[in-house]
C-alpha cells in the first residue's frame, strides 16, 4: 500500500530519527560552508558562543572592529570587541537588526539616541559596549558613525550571515519606532512612559522583519546566505504580564515558527536547530546550568559539533582546559549579556 510516509527517510520518524539516533541527520545544509566562507554573526547572547566556536574551529568569522593590539580578551569583551562580527552588542530582536541595517544603508544615523549614564553618555542602541561611557553626545555619535561604516565594510565581504534570534519583547521609542536592546533606565538613560513603549512582536512581524533583513543584506553583498538559529536562553524578565516561563516559551515558539517558515520559503536561507538541541531530552538535555538559564559548555559544544559535522568541518577543539566544576572559569566564559542586567531589578 502506498502512502506519503512510505518513502520518507529515517530522519522523518521519531523512532529512528530521535529515539534511537540523532545527530548527523538532524540538519542538512542547503549550501556549503567551508573554512574559506566569510561568516558574519549577530544576535543575542547565545550568538557569542557561536562566533567563538566557529573561530575556534578555524572558520573565517569576520570582525568589523577588532580590538587594538594590546587589549586583552577580558577587556575587549567588556568593550564589546570580538563578541560578534560587529561591535553592535547583543541584537535580541529581528526588528533591532532590521533597523541597524536600514540605518547603515541609509548612510548613517537619522536620529540621535544617546542616553546619559551619570555624567557620561552612551549609545542607546548598544549601551553596553562602552561600560563607562563617553564624554559627550557628539562623541557618542562620532563613534556610532564609525561603527556603522565599519559594519558596512564588513557586511560587503560576508558570504554568510548567521543570526540568532533571542527575544520578541522590546522597548521602543514611541515617536520613531526605534527599538532598544534594553529598556531605557536599566543600564543608562531614563525611562519615560510618554516616550517609551513596550512591544511584543508577533510571528507575522518577525517574519516580515526577516524578509526585510534578507533584502537589506543582499544590498551589501548579493548572494549572501543566511543561517537562522533561535537562542535557547530563556528571558531574564518579561514586561508582558505573563509568568516569565510562559513568556519565554511563547517567545521561542514565535521565533522558531517565524525562522522556520522564512527558511523554508526562501532560497539561500536555512535554519539550524540550536534551540532544539539544547532544550530537548533527545540530546541528553536540557543543557542548562543550575540557574536553568545559562547554557552549559557541554550544550554549546554539542550544538557546534553538530553544526560543524553537518558541514564536514572538524569539531571545534574543546575550550581551553576548563576543569569541570571550576565556577570562576565558567563564569569568566559567560557571554556578555546586557539582558542579564535586568536581574538587578528582580525583587
Amino acid at each position: 500500500m502506498s502512502h506519503p510516509y512510505a518513502d520518507l527517510p529515517r530522519r522523518a520518524f521519531w523512532r529512528h530519527g530521535t529515539a534511537r539516533a540523532v545527530g548527523a541527520e538532524l540538519f542538512e545544509p542547503t549550501y556549503p560552508i567551508t573554512r574559506a566562507t566569510r561568516i558574519a554573526t549577530a544576535g543575542s547572547c547565545f550568538a557569542q558562543h557561536i562566533a567563538r566556536s566557529l573561530r575556534g574551529a578555524g572558520c573565517k568569522v569576520l570582525d568589523a572592529e577588532p580590538p587594538p593590539r594590546g587589549m586583552g580578551p577580558d577587556l575587549a569583551a567588556r568593550h564589546g570587541y570580538g563578541l560578534f562580527s560587529g561591535r553592535y552588542g547583543n541584537i535580541y530582536t529581528a526588528r533591532q537588526l532590521r533597523q541597524l541595517l536600514t540605518e547603515i544603508v541609509s548612510g548613517g544615523p537619522e536620529q540621535r539616541f544617546v542616553w546619559q549614564r551619570g555624567a557620561l553618555f552612551v549609545d542607546a542602541l548598544r549601551p553596553t559596549v562602552e561600560p563607562e561611557g563617553l564624554d559627550s553626545p557628539d562623541e557618542v555619535m562620532l563613534h556610532r558613525d564609525y561603527h556603522l561604516e565599519r559594519t558596512s565594510q564588513m557586511l560587503q565581504q560576508a558570504d554568510l550571515f548567521i543570526f540568532t534570534l533571542g527575544l520578541t519583547e522590546a522597548w521602543r521609542d514611541r515617536n520613531t519606532g526605534r527599538v532598544f536592546p534594553v529598556c531605557p533606565g536599566v543600564t543608562a538613560g531614563r525611562f519615560d512612559a510618554a516616550a517609551h513603549e513596550f512591544v511584543t512582536f508577533s510571528q507575522a512581524e518577525v517574519l516580515e522583519d526577516l524578509r526585510a533583513i534578507r533584502a537589506l543584506l543582499q544590498r551589501f553583498r548579493p548572494g549572501m546566505q543566511m543561517l537562522l538559529t533561535v537562542s535557547p536562553v530563556p528571558l531574564t524578565a518579561t514586561a508582558g504580564g505573563a509568568h516569565v516561563l510562559v513568556a519565554s516559551q511563547a517567545a521561542k515558539a514565535t521565533l522558531r515558527s517565524a525562522a522556520g517558515e522564512f527558511a523554508a520559503g526562501t532560497a539561500g536561507v536555512s535554519y539550524f536547530p540550536s534551540y532544539e538541541i539544547v532544550t530537548t531530552p533527545a540530546f541528553g538535555g536540557p543543557h542548562f546550568e543550575p540557574d536553568l538559564r545559562r547554557v552549559t559548555q557541554g550544550g554549546v559544544d554539542l550544538v557546534m559539533q553538530l553544526f560543524l559535522d553537518a558541514h564536514g568541518l572538524e569539531s571545534a577543539a574543546p575550550p581551553e582546559s576548563e576543569p569541570q566544576g571550576d565556577t570562576d572559569l565558567q563564569e569568566a566564559d559567560d557571554p556578555v549579556c546586557d539582558e542579564l542586567l535586568l536581574e538587578a531589578f528582580a525583587k
Binding site: 568593550h79 562602552e130 561611557g133 563617553l134 562620532l142 563613534h143
Partner: peptide
C-alpha cells in the same frame, strides 16, 4: 588605527 574610547 581603530577608534576606541579614551577610557578603553
Amino acid at each position: 588605527p581603530r577608534l576606541i574610547s579614551r577610557r578603553a
